[in-house]
Design a protein around this nucleic acid. Structure first.
Length: 443
RNA sequence: GGCCUGGUGGCAGAGUGGUGAUGCAGCGGACUGCAAAUCCGCGAAUGCCGGUUCGAUUCCGGCCCAGGCCUCCA
């Protein structure tokens, strides 16, 4: 089954043909670690985790790289506010990120490079750009010369003139051209910095991805992915840096971008206060419910992230886990064809989910859901999940109440048995009488 | 102003040049001590105006509406 992906470069779906069919290489832009990530940051991680899983089924070797940006002005500001060392802040938030993404069912990338560990590579790359006339030093900075690249702007379909005309930002006086962007900037004594031929300083935002992708995936690789908002300037500038430094006609063959996430119909933003961190959501909903909601719309479409959506996602998973419950549900050997076909068409996860609804066999259902990174846990564990800080009855108390209710039912004291059931319901525990006895779940 | 998305039943959300998936909700039935869960069945939608076509929700043009990007941003 051939894989087709939408390539931002061409604005069309294209058959996926790897550069080396023996080794597919994928890069996804990761977070800047200065705080817990928000739910919008999780969308590319989950969407491209589905891609990673699919590629691993198709190709003998896949290398997936997702960076962690641990040097950035926001980090410096936050560390100063917190009165803590930068490394303490970045280590703590990077660990929280990794743990949160794991709880969303995302596989760990093969490499998770941190920018501060690749400053040497970045300095080398900037040196190459200067040597080739694509960059120039100015007042302690090094800038990329946009006019030096004939087809700059291909990804975002913008010409240099359009950029300059639409610019909302004041042009720094040391720029030769208003469109030029920073590769290296000087640091004061208090700011973190590294030695370079242009003085002590730190890298600009874009250069780390160029340097780290080249190091782990090569000068050209297959897929580069990230959020829609990264098309410009981040990915445009990565392309400029990598192509001009290495002299290739392309950096990555396929550029994939996920759409944005709205909160209750409005753009998520700090000023509106409609801002959820993955960390806090994981206290209130199971990770798989959050993941299912993220996959319930196509990755390129906008996704409205609502409480109702989470409740519905959890209900769907309740039903699926109900199919698995008490039955032998080891995943069947292969992913059901309908699911595989849907995912092969530019990751059509909503269509794949609809196919899952048609599956009644537990092993097949689990195999199909696993392709989406869902139904990865034991069914009983799923039904015992409770929100953080919930004050409901313990498992043992529930079992005891069920036993008391069974005794009442046997004595045909339905008033008492219904009282017990209602009492548990108020406490968030739902009972279901089946042919094999009574099962329960936390609502 | 430039570039780019999208407008499908009550809600969520796919596909498709030829009787419009799927899930939730709703309605009816089976099952149950009663429920719940499950199963069976039912009703319900393609923003507006043109064009191409035997036929358009799908292709083309215009309009209206919503959203994103234009050097913080997933």
């Amino acid at each position: 089954m051939s894989l087709v992906v939408y390539n931002t470069l061409s604005r069309e779906k294209e058959p996926f043909v790897p550069i080396d069919a023996g080794h597919v290489r994928l890069y996804v832009c990761g977070p800047t670690v200065y705080d817990y990530v928000h739910i919008g940051n999780a969308r590319p991680v989950v969407a491209f985790d589905v891609l990673y899983r699919l590629l691993r089924r198709r190709y003998p070797r896949v290398t997936y790289v997702r960076n962690i940006t641990d040097i950035d002005d926001r980090i410096m500001v936050r560390a100063a506010d917190n009165r803590e060392p930068i490394e303490a802040l970045t280590n703590r938030t990077a660990s929280a990120y990794q743990s949160d993404m794991q709880r969303l069912g995302a596989l760990a990338p093969d490499h998770e490079p941190r920018a501060t560990q690749y400053v040497g590579e970045m300095v080398d790359m900037i040196g190459r750009l200067v040597d080739k006339g694509h960059a120039y030093p100015a007042e302690g900075h090094v800038l990329f010369s946009v006019p030096s690249m004939a087809d700059y702007g291909r990804l975002s379909r913008r010409t240099r003139d359009e950029l300059v005309a639409g610019a909302r930002v004041e042009v720094a006086p040391y720029k030769k051209d208003p469109a030029d962007f920073v590769l290296w900037k000087p640091s004061t004594d208090e700011q973190p910095g590294w030695p370079s031929p242009w003085g002590r300083g730190r890298p600009g935002w874009h250069i780390e991805c160029s340097a780290m992708s080249a190091r782990h995936l090569g000068e050209t690789f297959d897929i580069h992915a990230g959020g829609l908002d990264l098309i410009f300037p981040h990915h445009e500038n990565e392309i400029a840096q990598s192509r001009c430094a290495f002299g290739h006609g392309l950096m990555a063959r396929y550029w994939m971008h996920n759409g944005f996430l709205n909160i209750s119909g409005e753009k998520m933003s700090k000023s509106l206060g409609n801002f959820f961190t993955v960390h806090e959501l994981l206290d209130q909903y199971p990770g798989e419910a959050i993941r299912l909601l993220l996959l319930s719309a196509h990755y390129r479409q906008p996704l409205d992230f609502t409480h109702e959506g989470l409740v519905q996602a959890k209900a769907t998973l309740d039903r699926w886990y109900g199919v698995l419950r008490g039955r032998d549900a080891a995943p069947a050997g292969s992913v059901p064809q309908a699911v595989e076909e849907a995912l092969s068409d530019d990751l059509n996860t909503p269509l794949a989910i609809s196919a899952l609804h048609q599956l009644g066999d537990p092993a097949t259902l689990r195999a199909g859901a696993n392709a989406l990174g869902l139904l990865q846990q034991d069914a009983e564990a799923w039904f015992r999940w409770a929100p953080a800080g919930a004050a409901g009855p313990t498992d043992a108390e529930i079992e005891a109440a069920i036993a008391a209710r069974q005794a009442a039912r046997k004595a045909r004291d339905f008033k008492e048995s219904d009282r017990i059931r209602d009492d548990l319901k108020v406490k968030g525990v739902l009972l279901e009488d089946g042919p094999k006895g009574t099962t329960w779940k936390r609502g």
